[in-house]
Nucleic acid binder design. Sequence first.
DNA 1: TTGACTTTTGCGACTTATTCGCATTTACAT
DNA 2: ATGTAAATGCGAATAAGTCGCAAAAGTCAA
Lengths: 140, 140
Amino acid sequence: MVTALTDETDYRQILREAGLRVTPQRASIITILSEADDHPNVEDLYEKTRALDDTVSVATVYRTMSVLENAGLVRKLVLDDAPARYEMMPQTDHDHLVDLDSGDLVEIPGTEIAELMSRVASELGYEIVSHHTVIRARKI
Amino acid sequence: MVTALTDETDYRQILREAGLRVTPQRASIITILSEADDHPNVEDLYEKTRALDDTVSVATVYRTMSVLENAGLVRKLVLDDAPARYEMMPQTDHDHLVDLDSGDLVEIPGTEIAELMSRVASELGYEIVSHHTVIRARKI
DNA sequence: TTGACTTTTGCGACTTATTCGCATTTACAT
DNA sequence: ATGTAAATGCGAATAAGTCGCAAAAGTCAA
C-alpha cells in the first residue's frame, strides 16, 4: 500500500491537532478500517483488530469510532435494522445503497446527491453538518 | 377534521387488502399518528394513544408501526442517536433535516431528492424500495 | 530523561430501544 | 353463531451502545 505512510502521518497529525492522543489501539483500529474494502461494523472491526493487536477492547472500538467521527476522519453509516457501519472518510464523496436481497452496501459514486442536499438545506437557511442517505433497493 | 373519515376508510381498506385486521388498537394508534404534526416516537405515540384507549400496550405500538410501515401507510425515520420517529406516509413527498441546535425535525419539501435517488439507483441497475435521507444541519 | 498531568484504556456493569414467547382474546369469513 | 388464524398484553429477553472506575500510558515542559 503506497499511500499507507502518508495516510498514517495524516491521521496522526489530525488527531494531535485535535488535542487527541495517538495510541496503539487507535493506530491498529485505523489500520484495519483503512484496509477494509467493505463497511465494517464494530464487531467486525473488533475481531479483525484483535488479530493484529490483542490489547483492544470493544469499548475502545466504540470510543475510537466516535472520536474519529468527530475528528472528521471516519464516516458512520446508520442503517435501519443493523448495527452502524463505518468507513474512512472518503476523498471521493459518495452515498450508499443497501441491496435488500444480498444485504450488500453498494457505494453510489458522484457528488450529485451531496450537492443537492447542500442546495436544499441552504434554501431553508441551514448549513449542512452531515448528511446521511441510505437507499434501500433491489436489483432490477 | 374533514378528511378524517376518508383517511379512516382508506387505512381500513388498505389493511384489509393486505390481509391484516382492523383492530381498535390499530385504529387508535393511527388516529393519534394522523393528528400529530410533529414526528412522534413510540413513546410519544404510546402515551398519547393511552389517553384515548387504555388497552394499548407499548409492544402493540411497536408492532403496529412495523405493520403499517410494511403496508406502506407509515414512514419510519431512523435517526442516529434517538429512537425512531414516525409519520403517516405523506402525499407530498419530502425528506428531513435535523436541526442540531434545537433537535427539531424539519421537513424538506419537494420531490427533487426522491427523483435524484431514483435516477441514481436505476443507473446502478437498482429499483428503489425506500430511501432515507436525513440531513443534520445548523441554522446559518 | 524524568516527572507531572491528563487522556485513554479494559473491564464489567448498565442503559435503552426494540423484539419475543406465550397464554388469552378477538376480528372476520363462513 | 362458530372456527380459526391473527393480534394482543405482559413481562422477560436481546442487542447495540454507553459509563464508572481504577490502572496504564501518551505528551509536554523542564
